[in-house]
């Protein structure tokens, strides 16, 4: 089991109001699984993804990542765990505009302390795999949306993480580019990477093994895909 979440709670507070984003949510993800999380806007999908991605803190409940209870980890501990184990793919790509394709993809390797010569090998390999080697010296704004998302996926996988978290990865893409990205994710999953994907798209959800549906911070249903 890579992820075990039990009675997870998360609140957002503004000056006077407290909103419950996750309400006693429990679920598990096995290693090598491809799980899609669906639900209407505001149901807590992204919050869940941020917590699972160790970006956000938990207010209550248990979160076991690779056998370790991490619910009360400090920001520093979470950052260390995150950089070695998790890759992110966002709807809006979130590439750094001031860095080239190559440099964007290289970034996770820098943070995990990989030596430059090794970095070069890994980056070149993943660029080739994503078929964007010819764009290696371009800046994000010089690429199409599909190309940018490929770069984002390349960046997410370059350091071989155990888990990829994808937040509506095709949300900003046309269907053809969207399908390409889903193909990429599926291939990565087949190669052994666990994937959790938040999506509004039933079409994209079909690529997953299991769909968790949420409403108001609860898990409503859980369907195994055919």
């Amino acid at each position: 089991m890579i992820i075990q979440v039990k009675n997870l709670e998360k609140y957002y507070r503004t000056d006077e109001v407290q909103t419950i984003a996750l309400n006693k949510l429990s679920f598990e993800v096995k290693e090598g699984e491809f799980v899609a999380i669906m639900g209407p806007s505001g149901c807590g999908k992204s919050t869940l993804l941020n917590i699972v991605g160790l970006l956000d803190e938990v207010d209550a409940g248990s979160f076991v990542f690779k056998g370790q209870e991490v619910a009360h980890y400090s920001e520093r501990q979470r950052a260390r765990l995150r950089k070695h184990n998790i890759g992110f793919v966002f709807q809006s790509f979130n590439l750094i505009d001031e860095l080239t394709v190559y440099e964007n993809v290289e970034l996770p390797l820098i943070y995990t302390g990989v030596k430059p010569s090794q970095r070069r090998l890994q980056v070149e390999a993943v660029l080739e795999k994503m078929q964007i080697t010819h764009r290696r010296n371009h800046f994000p704004q010089q690429l199409s949306g599909g190309q940018q998302q490929r770069v984002a996926v390349a960046r997410a996988v370059v350091h071989n993480p155990k888990l990829i978290l994808a937040d509506e990865p095709t949300g900003n893409l046309d269907s053809s580019n969207g399908n390409e990205v889903m193909q990429l994710l599926t291939e990565l999953n087949k190669a052994g990477t666990t994937i959790i994907m938040v999506t509004h798209s039933e079409h994209d959800a079909q690529y997953s093994h299991r769909v968790i549906r949420m409403l108001d911070g609860h898990k409503v249903t859980e369907n195994i895909m055919a």
Binding site: A79, L107, T112
Partner: peptide
Amino acid sequence: AKEVGIRKTLGSERPQ
């Protein structure tokens, strides 16, 4: 801000 967010997501710690 966006760059800071991305770097943190990719594992950058605050001192870095």
